[in-house]
C-alpha cells in the first residue's frame, strides 16, 4: 500500500533521513522504533507531505505521491496523529473532530462523529469544552478521534502513548489493536518499543536516519541487538 524508496530529508544542510526503504502492506500494523532524534517524526512528516523530501520517493497504491500536497494525501486516506497531539486548543472538542472530517462530506462527518463518540464516550461528554482544557490522555483520544474522522486507509501514529500514565498507555494500545482488527492499516511509531513490537506484524528499527533492522515484531523482540539497544535487557 505504502512504499518509501531511498527517501531522504534534510533540516537545512543537516540530514535527518538518509535513504529510507520501507513498505507497509494493506491491513498490516507496522511499527517503527528508534531512539530520540533517530528521525521517526521526520519520516512520518515526510510521508504526510509536511516535510520536504530531498531525494527518493513515496508510493501509495503504486502511485508516486512524493510531490503531492498534504491535503491531497489526507483525501486519499493517509492520515496522521502527530506527535504531541496538536489539538486545536481554543476550539471545542466537537469542532476538532469536525475539522478532522474536513476532507469528507458533511453527512459522512455526522456519521463519523457518532462512530468516534461510540469509541471514546468521554469525548461526547466533553464535546462542548475547549480541547486545550482536556488532560493529556483525553487529548490523545481526541487526536485519534480527529484522525479517524478523515476515514484513514493508512493511519500514521506518532508516539500515541507519550507522556501517558501506564493505564492510559494500555488503553491506547488497545485502541490501536482494535483499529487494526477493524481493517485499518497502521504505521506506528512509539518509544514504548516492547509494546509496539508486541502488537506489530512487522517492524523497522531506525537509527540516525537509517533503517538498521527489519523483521516481524516477534523476530525483533527476540533479537539480541534490539533487546540491548531498545528493550533495556
Amino acid at each position: 500500500m505504502l512504499e518509501a524508496k531511498a527517501l531522504a530529508s534534510h533540516y537545512g544542510r543537516i540530514p535527518a533521513l538518509k535513504g529510507i526503504d520501507l513498505a507497509v502492506r494493506e491491513g498490516e500494523l507496522v511499527a517503527l522504533v528508534g531512539a530520540n532524534g533517530a528521525g521517526k517524526t521526520t519520516l512520518l512528516r515526510a510521508l504526510s507531505g509536511v516535510q520536504p523530501v530531498s531525494a527518493g520517493c513515496v508510493l501509495f497504491d503504486g502511485e508516486d505521491i512524493t510531490r503531492a500536497s498534504p491535503h491531497w494525501r489526507v483525501r486519499r486516506g493517509i492520515v496522521q496523529v502527530p506527535e504531541g497531539r496538536q489539538v486545536f486548543g481554543p476550539l471545542s472538542v466537537e469542532d476538532n473532530l469536525l475539522l478532522g472530517g474536513y476532507t469528507r462530506k458533511r453527512a459522512e462527518g455526522a456519521r463519523g462523529l457518532e462512530r468516534v463518540y461510540a469509541m471514546f464516550p468521554m469525548l461526547r461528554d466533553k464535546r462542548r469544552e475547549a480541547a486545550g482544557t482536556l488532560s493529556g490522555g483525553q487529548q490523545q483520544m481526541l487526536a485519534m478521534g480527529r484522525a479517524l474522522m478523515a476515514q484513514p486507509r493508512l493511519l500514521l501514529l506518532d508516539e500515541p502513548s507519550m507522556g501517558l500514565a501506564p493505564r492510559l498507555v494500555e488503553e491506547v494500545f488497545e485502541t490501536v489493536h482494535a483499529l487494526k482488527s477493524a481493517g485499518t492499516t497502521i504505521f506506528l511509531v512509539d518509544q514504548n518499543a516492547r509494546a509496539a513490537l508486541a502488537i506489530a506484524d512487522r517492524a523497522y528499527v531506525l537509527e540516525t536516519g537509517t533503517i538498521v533492522h527489519a523483521g516481524t515484531g516477534a523476530e525483533l523482540l527476540a533479537s539480541k541487538q534490539v533487546q540491548a539497544a531498545y528493550l533495556g535487557l
Binding site: S48, G49, V50, P70, H71, V74, R75, V79, Q80, P82, Q86, V87, F88, G89, P90, L91, D95, L98, L99, G100, Y102, T103, R146, A150
Partner: peptide, 17 residues
C-alpha cells in the same frame, strides 16, 4: 473554523487536510 484552526496550529491544520 478551518481558518481559526490554521491560525492556531498550521501543522495540525495541514494534517487534517
Amino acid at each position: 473554523k478551518a481558518l481559526l484552526a490554521t491560525s492556531h496550529n498550521r501543522l495540525a491544520a495541514q494534517l487534517v487536510g
